[in-house]
């Protein structure tokens, strides 16, 4: 029941002298004329149909856009200092461990692969493979964090601190922020893993896994860029 459909008719308003002509009324859902008054447009996708992306995926895309902007702020800061004409990296500072981190990068990329495998397993309804693959992914993430942490301790011992100079400030801020993101992704993954063990996900109900996987891929996808900028450039 829609009460307004029965609203009593109102008296027609006298049109004022000199008023601009009103647009011709448009047929329901037809092709609009000039669009004044919020006209129709048959070219629009009808919102009543199935949306292109589910709410979860769309929300994750929006979150990922925000994360990318956050990291562009940090990367922008990095580029300003990197190309300011000063010697880079500054003299008398420990060099960053490129080889170990390259291996670490490979591990992280591998975790994205296992995450894709987990998503495919979910799609196929493979209830056993999903928790297993998620566990592998999480372990790879933890290993990445552990190696990063070990390298940080070594660097601090060598005298590269956040307050020593801009080089150190940038390194610890950017890599630390990314590390924090990996950590939050791992925590999220553990939560998803627990629910996967309880059998909460299925091919028809994949949203929890999909959201976590999108975040995981974001965190992994950011890393090669940061690795190139901070370690290699």
């Amino acid at each position: 029941m829609n009460p307004v459909l029965e609203a009593p008719p109102k008296e027609k308003r006298e049109r004022w002298e000199g008023a601009p002509p009103s647009p011709p009324p448009e047929p329901p859902d037809g092709n609009g004329g000039n669009g004044n008054g919020g006209g129709d447009d048959s070219r629009d996708s009808s919102p009543s149909g199935k949306p292109l992306l589910g709410n979860t995926q769309l929300a994750m895309l929006v979150l990922i856009a925000a994360e990318i902007m956050f990291f562009s702020g940090l990367i922008g800061a990095f580029l300003v200092f990197r190309f300011s004409g000063k010697p880079w990296p500054p003299p008398f500072q420990p060099r960053l461990p490129v080889e170990v981190t390259a291996v670490n990068t490979a591990l992280l990329l591998l975790s994205s692969y296992t995450m894709v495998r987990a998503q495919l397993a979910l799609k196929k309804g493979d209830a056993k493979a999903l928790p297993r693959l998620l566990t592998v992914t999480g372990v790879l993430g933890v290993v990445f964090l552990a190696i990063q942490g070990y390298e940080w301790v070594r660097l601090v011992n060598f005298g590269l601190t956040a307050s020593a100079n801009v080089y150190g400030s940038l390194f610890y801020s950017i890599i630390g922020t990314h590390g924090f993101h990996v950590l939050s992704a791992v925590v999220w993954l553990v939560a998803v893993l627990v629910r996967a063990h309880l059998g909460k996900y299925s091919a028809r109900n994949p949203n929890g896994v999909v959201a976590c996987a999108m975040y995981w891929h974001l965190v992994v996808g950011l890393w090669p860029i940061l690795f190139y900028l901070v370690y290699l450039l």
């Binding site: 447009d41 919102p47 769309l58």
Partner: peptide, 13 residues
């Protein structure tokens, strides 16, 4: 994006 009611096209928003 996803929850407009039936008939609420972008240019009727």
């Amino acid at each position: 994006i996803n929850m407009r009611t039936e008939g609420m096209t972008w240019f009727r928003v």
